[in-house]
């Protein structure tokens, strides 16, 4: 199953869950239960938003394959710190990603990390197993 199919399946799962939640909302009278159900709907919407972003990134990546072949040294990468007109790039496991418009990278920083750096070890310690990288736009590869 390719990335696109995985995203579409996940969107469908979320939509099915939302349907069930809305059915429950019609019958519940408890304000606490209602609150939980509304929270769940919000979470589903957030998930769908992420999946859509992943789908869009997948489409933009497949059109110009040459961009992903661009090579970066650590010095090159450090210029892409998200400041003064430069986009914000980070490297994970040798791949360089664009996080300029990624919401979690407000001000080109994220939990004490700055764009323009290799964040492989920090990514492994915080986001191992999470489908995050596939939603980011690849811009090239990191070379020694």
């Amino acid at each position: 199953m390719n990335d696109r199919e995985i995203f579409i399946n996940m969107i469908n799962d979320n939509l099915n869950e939302m349907n069930g939640t809305i059915d429950c909302l019609y019958i519940t009278t408890s304000i606490c239960a209602k609150n939980k159900l509304l929270n769940r709907l919000r979470r589903n919407m957030s998930n769908i938003n992420l999946m859509l972003q992943g789908l869009r990134n997948g489409e933009s990546m497949s059109s110009p394959p040459s961009i992903a072949e661009r090579l970066f040294t650590m010095q090159d990468l450090s210029r892409y710190n998200g400041r003064d007109g430069n986009p914000a790039y980070i490297a994970v496991n040798g791949v360089v990603y664009d996080v300029t418009s990624n919401a979690a990278w407000g001000g080109a920083t994220h939990f004490g990390l700055s764009a323009g750096t290799d964040v492989t070890s920090q990514f492994a310690s915080c986001h191992a197993g999470q489908p995050i990288l596939s939603k980011l736009k690849v811009v090239g590869k990191l070379v020694e």
């Binding site: 914000a88 300029t100 001000g107 080109a108 920083t109 004490g112």
Partner: peptide, 16 residues
């Protein structure tokens, strides 16, 4: 979690 160290800087200018 991580506040305040990991949430700094609290304000950034000249971001692209």
């Amino acid at each position: 979690f991580g506040f305040p160290d990991q949430m700094e800087p609290f304000i950034s200018y000249d971001t692209t």
